[in-house]
């Protein structure tokens, strides 16, 4: 196979634009499906709330009203921001620390044999215990809150990244050694691209887990954030507000997934013929 690639198979997407109309429809179909599906869920919810009217089960209209009111007085954005900040900080700490430990364990078998029981132990400590202990030992402060969330997530990252390090291809490292790549080049061009699928997997499962734990942390020991608000409205028995805050945060996480996570992943896997 010596012929230049333009005679052979073309990269995917090269045929785009042959029929722009059907292409547009094909692009819109998944979006429409999601919209219709969510609308259907809202409708079902509305019908159910209408059939069993109760203060404990408000309809989507009521929740929307509360959401607008909270947004108008600024509370919503203040508490969303506080929670988002904690999620981001805990995520960064957990990914950096977990990746370092995971790669070290994955590339040193004796260290892995020694520390593997620790990983299993930390994997199985309940999140609540870590949070309570962190508040007792370090006080009701931001560092303890973020640290507790990170400690809950780190063992998961370690396990994933350990697998990633075990799957590293030594021929790339040898090539880098022969051509005397610098340390930064090795990390950036040799190590991280190989670990990318594992980083993506750890991130994906990480963000979802972290934000749920952040709510518990806020409920137990912070005076702002979505978790704090939910606890407040729980005491007031205001289910509409609880749902409003929950849905608002889920929406924020969806937007992050669509606007940050997916584009980053597409960029990182652009070299694959068929993006995973």
């Amino acid at each position: 196979m010596m012929s230049p690639p333009d005679t052979g198979d073309r990269p995917p997407g090269a045929a785009a634009g042959t029929s722009s109309q059907s292409g547009l429809a094909a692009a819109l179909t998944p979006v429409l499906t999601v919209a219709v599906s969510l609308l259907g869920l809202c409708l079902l919810w509305g019908l159910a709330a209408h059939a069993w009217p109760s203060r404990a089960f408000p309809g989507p209209g009521q929740v929307w009203q509360v959401l607008l009111a909270e947004a108008a007085n600024g509370d919503l954005f203040y508490h969303l921001g506080a929670t988002l900040g904690r999620v981001a900080a805990a995520y960064v700490v957990a990914m950096v620390v977990g990746s370092l430990i995971g790669v070290l364990l994955g590339s040193h078998r004796s260290a892995d044999r020694f520390f593997a029981p620790w990983v299993v132990l930390f994997l199985n400590i309940p999140a609540l215990v870590v949070i309570v202990l962190a508040y007792i030992w370090f006080g009701l402060n931001e560092a303890a809150a973020i640290g507790a969330v990170a400690v809950n997530k780190i063992p998961n990252v370690v396990v994933t990244m350990r697998e990633g390090a075990r799957a590293l291809d030594p021929t790339y490292a040898e090539m880098a050694a022969v051509y005397r790549f610098g340390l930064l080049d090795r990390i950036r061009h040799v190590l991280l691209p190989q670990l990318q699928p594992y980083l993506a997997a750890a991130s994906r499962s990480g963000i979802a887990l972290i934000w749920k734990i952040v709510l518990v942390v806020e409920l137990l020991g912070r005076s702002n954030g979505v978790g704090f608000q939910i606890y407040l409205y729980f005491q007031l028995f205001d289910v509409a507000a609880i749902l409003a805050y929950t849905l608002a945060f889920v929406a924020v996480m969806l937007v992050i997934e669509l606007l940050v996570v997916q584009p980053v992943e597409r960029h990182a896997t652009r070299w694959r013929r068929r993006p995973a």
Partner: peptide, 28 residues
């Protein structure tokens, strides 16, 4: 005092273009 090698397999970094693969092997 540099050495270069052509391995049994090409050992190009799949996530870098041909040109980037060549330039990365060069000293700064």
């Amino acid at each position: 005092d540099r050495i270069a090698a052509v391995f049994q397999e090409p050992v190009l970094l799949p996530w870098r273009t041909v040109e980037q693969n060549v330039r990365l092997a060069l000293p700064k």
